[in-house]
């Protein structure tokens, strides 16, 4: 049976919405989109997902000891460190984001485990984040995650082969890989 389509009339100005500021009702920008819902619950679920992700993105760095990462603009001005970084890390901002969300592989593949925490990149940061501290905490968390089996073993082995672990971590990583392989190197 063909379903009769109702005439759709846009409601760009919905008088039932509360006024926020001059010319802006709360839902003004998306009033026309609001009428597009297939089911209200789908949209509600989507909004819940968005809210939860945002809340988690803020709460997680606070809970894991890197609250400063919330202030990162992700402007990547720190890339200007260039050859002043003794560990030849090119993408410092990637390490900050990785530390914020707990993306351990992103931290490793961008050279975070080679960082010497010298602070050479700090002067380039436009909001003066304590980068050595953030990177140090990131390194600790990577080691913990590795030992708890939360990073795929194959990626750890690849990182080791590519020289992505600094001298201070190599022994621990090799020992862990040995243990995983039942004592075989």
């Amino acid at each position: 049976m063909a379903r009769e389509k109702r005439k759709y009339t846009p409601k760009r100005e919905d008088g039932t919405q509360p006024i926020g500021l001059p010319g802006i009702r709360r839902l003004q920008f998306f009033t026309n989109l609001r009428d597009r819902a297939l089911t209200k619950n789908l949209n509600r679920l989507a909004m819940l997902g968005i809210g939860a992700s945002l809340a988690l993105d803020v709460a997680k760095p606070v809970a894991t000891g890197v609250p400063q990462t919330i202030f990162c603009y992700e402007c990547r001005a720190c890339y200007a460190t260039q050859d002043k970084c003794p560990a030849a890390i090119a993408y410092q901002a990637e390490l900050i984001v990785a530390a914020r969300v707990g993306d351990h592989w992103r931290f490793i593949k961008n050279g975070g485990m080679k960082c010497l925490r010298c602070g050479g990149c700090v002067s380039f940061c436009v909001v003066n984040l304590d980068l050595p501290r953030i990177f140090s905490r990131g390194q600790q968390r990577v080691m913990e995650a590795m030992e708890q089996g939360r990073i795929p073993r194959r990626r750890i082995r690849r990182a080791l082969e590519e020289g992505l672990f600094g001298r201070e971590f190599i022994d621990r990583v090799v020992a862990w890989l040995d243990k995983q392989n039942g004592g075989r190197a």
Binding site: S53, L54, L56, D57, V58, K60, I70, C72, Y73, E74, C75, V97, A98, R100, V101, G102, D103, H104, W105, R106, R150, I151, P152
Partner: peptide, 13 residues
């Protein structure tokens, strides 16, 4: 690891 990698896309600034 996927949810954490996805969260890395959210830019707070």
């Amino acid at each position: 690891t996927l949810p954490n990698e996805m969260m890395g896309g959210i830019i707070l600034h």
